[in-house]
Simulated assay, not measured.
Amino acid sequence: MKTKKLNIAFFGSSLVSAYWNGAATYYRGIVRALHGLGHSVTFYEPDAYDRQKNRDMPDPDWAKVVVYEATPEAAHQCLEKAAQADIIVKASGVGVFDELLEREVLRFQNDDTLVVFWDVDAPATLDRVHQNPEDQFLQLIPNYDMVLTYGGGQPVIEAYEALGAKKCVPIYNALDTSTHYPVAPEARFACDLAFLGNRLPDREARVEEFFLNPAAATPAKTFMLGGSGWSDKPMSANINYIGHVYTNDHNAFNCTPKAVLNISRESMARYGFSPATRVFEAAGAGACIITDFWEGIDFFFEPDQEILVAKSGAEVAAIIADLSEEKAKAIGKAAYNKVLSAHTYNHRAAQLEQLLYTKIKAEKEALA
């Protein structure tokens, strides 16, 4: 089949600001890699939650960014502009007018335009609709040409298909080698263990278990906490809370500590196969990663060789107590080699491209 380059309209939270927007680096990696394959992406994002006041990048040359006012009228105007695209993507968690967008994008579905729902937080979405049979999205799921997810593996695929999805495919997050890579360490980020994550209800108890408690239990070790929302959280004196960490500091934040910690949100851990974007970013910087346990870790990294796994806060404390600089560097190097060989956004974009072309071909054959 002769394949044309695709024109993709993408409705998401934000491409240019990571402020209260954990999906930003995921969007950037996917969109940049699609551009590298020759496809065109227009990213529509609302001016909401002070994200535009806290941008951490200018408009890129690998996507067209359209920032619209947070009004229904502006959202409808963007939908009309997106109507000529080959693919229209509605991502979850835009933050404003999600129900409107979920419903209205389907008006533009036709023989020449595929409409895709891209769920960047499938566990939360699935929990929501299972708890509320009146949720509008339940009726919409079977209408989308496909559902893509940020992760979740077979449990999420089966859950979406049980709700009527025509097709559900995880496009796992990955490493963007143009933005995350080894750099020289910086003294301001020096510590034994660092964790970066915004304070969220679905994460807080696990942060207490896997980070705050181990810090309190090992007063001779130094810890660093980055992310928004933790300023009034009680924590031991050996934790240095530094607030929001802009993406241009992520490499140094990952490279400098002896180890960095990944803590899954509760729902992500429950479904499994949902490595946080920061796992790949840290691996791309050559960091030694300690992660809480979740099903599917070995699908991405080999435990004890490329990543360290803790099933409790006590295990985090034990790992930190015994972790030498030599072992940390060896694990970080192994993780770096693995992520470059199998888990970059170029790998993910190639998977997505093939998926879309296959779907387009099937649609055309059905019409023939």
Rank of each mutant, 00 (worst) to 15 (best):
V156Y: 01
L193E: 02
E281Y: 00
D47T: 10
W118I: 11
A215S: 07
K64Y: 14
L367S: 14
L212P: 09
E99C: 11
E104H: 08
K359G: 14
A317S: 09
K329E: 09
V16M: 10
S312M: 12
W62I: 08
Y68K: 10
N21G: 14
E69K: 08
Y144S: 09
T113L: 01
D176E: 09
L225N: 05
E134Q: 10
D50V: 13
S92M: 08
L138S: 07
H244M: 15
E204L: 13
K233Y: 14
E302W: 08
R199E: 05
K166Q: 11
Y345R: 00
N143Q: 14
A159F: 03
P275A: 02
I242D: 03
D86G: 03
D176G: 06
M57D: 06
Q77A: 15
A18P: 10
S274F: 09
P257Y: 03
L126M: 08
D304R: 03
Y49C: 14
H35N: 15
A194L: 12
A75P: 02
P46F: 09
I171F: 11
V120S: 15
D111W: 05
N7F: 12
F280W: 01
Q52T: 12
N337C: 14
A122S: 06
A74R: 00
M1V: 14
D192Y: 04
Y271V: 15
T113M: 06
K4F: 07
V66H: 08
I290Y: 02
P155E: 03
S236V: 04
G227V: 01
A259K: 00
V116N: 05
K90P: 02
G296I: 07
K81G: 13
D98Q: 02
W230I: 04
R270K: 15
L37H: 03
V116Y: 00
V41R: 02
Y246I: 15
A330I: 07
A328L: 01
S341N: 13
L37T: 08
S178R: 14
R128G: 04
N238V: 12
I239C: 03
L15R: 07
M57L: 05
C168A: 15
A63H: 02
N346A: 14
E99M: 10
A82P: 01
E102Q: 12
G313Y: 04
F280R: 00
A285E: 05
D86C: 02
S324K: 00
S231Q: 12
N262I: 06
Y150H: 14
N143E: 10
G152E: 06
A237H: 06
A74S: 10
H130V: 06
A366T: 11
E158F: 11
E208W: 11
V94N: 08
V316T: 07
Y49V: 13
R278W: 06
N248M: 14
W20L: 15
L101T: 01
A334S: 03
E104T: 05
Y246R: 15
R348D: 05
A328M: 01
S341P: 06
P142N: 11
E104I: 09
K2M: 15
D98H: 02
F195G: 07
I297Q: 03
A362D: 14
N262G: 04
R32M: 12
I30S: 00
